[in-house]
């Protein structure tokens, strides 16, 4: 149990996907101008990551031991099609949930955080339960970063900021400061 908690906290805070591994920067810069959109994007991300964790685990266990060189291609195709399939199922059974998350799903499918999760879980040789906790932590960490960023950008809109700083430059500098703050979490498990 302690092991699972460690995986979760580590992916959530210490090795935060966005702020310390640089995964999923595109949504982080693109969809972070309003808190509620950012939150929904984050939730959709967690959802896709959980699906990814399961599919990558299944592929690794049952298929790729026979053909490891097909890893990249099969990861991408299987993850993309599974997400599309689940999207259809959700659309049919829960239109409300689809409305909340739906538009983000195709955007996320080939996001580097998703493929990164599948690859990292392979190199770390996680089992199914460990992978699920890893996905939950990673997705949660991205949501946290997205919402924090969106909150800051909402505030920044009413501030008097020089014209040249607006846009991506501002977001990146804010991200740098956030990333510095997250470095503080590295001391969290110093006894480990």
């Amino acid at each position: 149990m302690g092991d699972l908690l460690w995986i979760f906290i580590s992916a959530l805070l210490i090795n935060n996907f966005t702020l310390s591994s640089f995964l999923g920067i595109c949504p982080f810069l693109g969809v972070s101008d309003r808190v509620d959109t950012a939150l929904r994007m984050g939730l959709a991300n967690i959802f896709v990551m959980l699906i990814t964790a399961i599919s990558a685990w299944a592929l690794n266990t049952f298929v790729l031991i026979y053909a490891p060189y097909l890893r990249l291609i099969s990861f991408i195709i299987v993850i993309a099609s599974t997400v599309q399939f689940v999207e259809m199922v959700i659309k049919k059974f829960s239109p409300d949930l689809f409305k909340a998350l739906g538009i983000f799903l195709p955007l996320i499918t080939t996001n580097c955080a998703i493929l990164g999760l599948a690859l990292f879980q392979t190199t770390k040789e996680y089992g199914l339960v460990q992978s699920l906790f890893y996905a939950l932590g990673g997705g949660g960490g991205m949501t946290l970063a997205l919402v924090l960023m969106a909150g800051i950008r909402e505030e920044a809109r009413i501030l008097d900021i020089p014209r040249v700083v607006h846009g991506t430059a501002l977001s990146l500098i804010v991200a740098g400061i956030l990333s510095m703050a997250f470095m503080g979490f590295a001391g969290l498990f110093s006894s480990k």
Binding site: L19, G167, L170, L172, A175, G176, I177, M183
Partner: peptide, 19 residues
């Protein structure tokens, strides 16, 4: 050379080009 440096440097470079 740590992660924040990447964000900050690219941010400042973009700022410079904007200017």
């Amino acid at each position: 050379i740590l992660p924040p440096g990447g964000f900050l440097l690219l941010g400042f470079l973009l700022l410079f080009f904007n200017w």
